[in-house]
Simulated scan of single mutants.
Amino acid sequence: MSAADLTVEGVTLTAGARHLVRDVSLAARPGETIGLVGPNGSGKSSLLRTVYRVLRPDAGRVRVDGADAWSLPVRRLARTVAAVVQEPGSGLDLAVREVVAMGRTPHKRLLAGDTPEDAALVGSALAAVDVTHLADRPFDRLSGGERQRVLIARALAQQPALLVLDEPTNHLDIRHQLDVLGVLRRLPATVLLALHDLNLAAYYCDRLYVLRDGEVAASGPPAEVLTPRLLAEVYGVAAEVGVHPRTGAPQVTFLPGEPRRAAPDRAGRSTA
């Protein structure tokens, strides 16, 4: 597994008259873990869909290793980019091991069977997200969190150069949130993921892009981006930001008893 270079150049995406994403640019260098954060409806999922080629941008480009992602042959794209979407799928009438083995499909000829290498990679992916004990269970009978971990295992088995994940910790308990993000952080691949938990994003991501109303409100290392002022402006909440005494990562503490400032809209007006 190698790591890809990702560049998003001035991407704009609309739905009717509404801008889902407006002139967004970002970069992920090979091997980086890049986090997208921001309130609900800020454009995180829409931006990710342009990267893993579900929604074509109205303007701008997505480049993977310098090539326009939308011009890549489907097979080459599948060998390079893997995606884990927000809603754990169901309706797959397959055992868990078979679902994870689907990640090997882009690397095999049509109708080719699994090789010992494929089996080893599937086994490693199952173990990485703690679902080995579910290998023979029907996928569609799993809980939401179990399905999420299986789909992450499928993406790991795919051995992509770029892994794109939309809220991968949804449905997961605390232990598995930490386990999954730890696995992603150790991958040699480039990782782009959307997260709601700012403390997890601060610890596991090299850099953050904060989205608001479809635009980049701030970007940079977590310690530079996550400030009380930004949290008030983007999220409309009062917060303190300190340094975790053991990890050294920024630690956000929300202050529910404090007066909350409404986040301003694009014209600077209060949205309260």
Rank of each mutant, 00 (worst) to 15 (best):
A4Q: 04
V8E: 00
E9W: 08
G10A: 15
G10T: 14
L13E: 12
T14E: 13
A17Q: 15
R18W: 10
R22M: 09
R22G: 05
D23K: 03
L26E: 00
L26N: 02
A28L: 01
R29I: 04
R29A: 14
P30V: 07
P30M: 06
G31I: 01
I34A: 04
G35Y: 01
P39T: 05
G41K: 02
G43T: 05
L48F: 02
T50N: 09
Y52G: 02
V54I: 12
L55M: 14
L55I: 11
P57I: 00
P57S: 05
D58A: 12
R61D: 06
V64W: 00
D65T: 05
V74F: 08
V74P: 10
A78Y: 06
A78E: 10
R79T: 01
R79Y: 07
V84K: 01
G89P: 05
G91N: 08
V96M: 04
G103N: 09
R104Y: 03
A112F: 07
G113A: 11
D114Q: 11
D118M: 10
L126S: 02
L126N: 07
A128C: 11
L134S: 07
R141W: 10
G144E: 04
G145W: 06
G145E: 06
Q148M: 14
V150K: 00
Q158D: 01
P160Y: 11
A161S: 15
L165Q: 07
E167I: 03
E167S: 09
E167C: 02
I174A: 13
I174N: 00
H176V: 09
H176E: 05
Q177L: 05
L178D: 07
L178S: 09
V180W: 04
V180R: 04
L181S: 01
L184V: 08
L187G: 05
T190L: 03
L193Q: 08
A194I: 03
D206E: 13
V210N: 08
L211N: 00
R212E: 14
D213Q: 13
D213L: 13
G214P: 02
E215V: 15
S219K: 09
A223D: 15
E224M: 11
T227S: 10
T227M: 08
P228W: 07
R229L: 13
R229F: 12
L230V: 03
E233S: 12
V237M: 09
A238H: 06
E240W: 12
V241N: 11
V243R: 15
V243H: 10
P245D: 12
R246N: 09
R246V: 15
V252M: 04
T253E: 13
L255W: 10
L255S: 08
E258F: 09
R261D: 08
A262R: 13
A262G: 14
P264D: 04
A267G: 08
A267M: 10
